[in-house]
Amino acid sequence: MALYDTLAGARRKAFGSIPVTVGAVILVILVGSSALAQWIAPYNPKRATGGINEFPSLKHLFGTTGQGQDVLSQFLYGGQNTLWIAFTIAVLTTLLALIVALTAAYFRGWVDDVLTLVTNVFLVIPSLPLIVVLAAFLPPGPLTMIMVLTITGWAFGARLFRSQALSLREREFIAAAEDVGERRWRIVAIELLPNMGSVVAAYFVNQVIFAITAQASLEFLGLGDGGQVTWGSMLFWAQNTSALIRGAWWTFVVPGMAIALTAFSLALINNAVDELGNPRLRADRLLRRAGVRKPSASLMTPVKRNA
């Protein structure tokens, strides 16, 4: 039932809200065109197929790079590599963070202490040097990127989830469940987890954004694999050929905008997911559908809630 409501709500929301529609459309276009790169890209992205830094033209819609490659083809193929790496990192970090946080919340006591210690150690180790050292230690490539960003990217989530669980645990309904002798794993699975849904979903989408930008930053610093076409490596090459100084802004702006638009569309959707996961807000919507006007969460209407 709850699941059905959520999905139905999502569908209504998706068609009802402008930001979500905008986000979804952008995302579908970016993901779709990247997925079709093999068929729609006009050129081999790694080969010089034009002059150096050619202004966008009919022959090269997004212009050419400082190496003479077609920017449009690089954008399409680059999206493919960038996106699957980012999604993988997001899935792995969210799972890891959730496992750590729920294990801590379930066992409490010394297990919680140890896991919190580990989490905090990962939080306090400056991640950039760790990333640099790891990146220098491992051969550059997608697997290294995934490993490095997963190892360094989960700790904040674990801390966030744990503090959320802690905060939830103090709530009346959990306390009530505990009082009636409900089993702990049931509390975690039935009471804690669903109530953390919005936080987890928001975190996941944020992790996709984090992974895309972190990947780009690393590649920009030259710590990625410059031989692979990704949006980050496109930026690296634009920088390498001094694109801005030489006026070839299209080699720099295209991958930058690609990253920004992907992150933006995800963030828009994230906002919606966040609201969906919040039971309070779901109830608001049901009420509104039932014709009850209620300016939600406005402190101007103290007793409206009981209407």
């Binding site: 954004i209 780009a216 930053s217 980050g232 920004a260 992150a263 300016p295 406005s298 402190l299």
Partner: peptide
């Protein structure tokens, strides 16, 4: 949040989200 659903609430999040979507160095 206080003025939830108002113009500011509708406008500020997407604008800020868009700005925050750029890789910092870019």
């Amino acid at each position: 949040a206080w003025r939830r659903g108002g113009l500011f609430d509708k406008l500020a999040p997407p604008v800020l989200l868009f700005l925050g979507s750029f890789p910092y160095f870019f």
